[in-house]
Amino acid sequence: MNRLGRMWDSDIAWSFRHSPVAVVAAAMALIIILAAVFAPWIAPYNPFDPSSLNLMDGFTPPGEPNAFTGNTYLMGTDNQGRDIFSTILYGARISLFVGFAAVIFAMVLGIGLGLLAGWRGGWVDSLLMRVADVQLSFPSILIALLIFGVARGFIPPSMREEVAIWVLIVSIGLSDWVQYARVVRGAAMVEKSKEYVQAARVIGVHPARIVLRHILPNVMGPVLVIATIGLALAIIAEATLSFLGVGVPPTQPSLGTLIRIGQQYLFSGEWWILLFPSIALLLLALSVNLLGDWLRDALNPRLR
């Protein structure tokens, strides 16, 4: 049987095929991700190109022709006449980029420190885990806000716009590494005591190699689960920060920025500006989260 056939036949693929929730969630997530990645080709307008904007198009309700220009937009337009559908596609692009980058950052940091704590044990472990405990006692959004604020203080105002997105990624990543570190540490301790690791130690394999080649592959299962659920959380964290106005600059609106803009017009009747980006965020976070839940159950038969 070839590799693809084996994958299709594996237990995890079987469990996936037999979980309607997982299939629907995966399809939804895939559609959103593809739409976001190919936004420049899919979106009918480029909302960030000022030359294509017509202020007269502003506040067009969804599906109705504009009173002045006669243009019709699927999801309407915002105050500046930008097509909501296009801004959602471009916004999701930013949200997903920040989400993925933050998760990867948190994962690398968390796995590294978790492996270190689990392998070395002793005071290294105690120190790292106490730091983790302290951080866990604060809400992670607060940590992200704090890091974001501190980082902005160090960055000259001229560069702020440019690096804002990277500062955001680091802030969310730093607020989230603890989970990975804790899980990896626990799993690494279990694996460390197993005989295959002892066998490698008897041979005299270099500790770094034992950790990376033996232990790491065996602790990745739970990490993937947290990473999936973590992606949903990171996207929401980014939206929250952007909503609070400390996230990405308004020139590169993410879903959170769109929601912030939209809520200003909620009471004046332009509901679509808020509603559609919110639904997009909800669907994205929900589908990723459901996938994470399914993955957790599929990898851990005891929970079933």
């Binding site: 005989e195 295959y196 008897v202 041979i203 592959p217």
Partner: peptide
């Protein structure tokens, strides 16, 4: 000197191919 362990279900890394497992001492030395 080498060692043979009690539990053959724990003493082989489940993610490695048998060939790599056996060759590990050869590579290490």
């Amino acid at each position: 000197f080498q060692m043979i362990f009690q539990d053959p279900f724990a003493s082989l890394n489940p993610r490695w191919r048998v060939g790599d497992i056996i060759a590990e001492p050869i590579h290490t030395f």
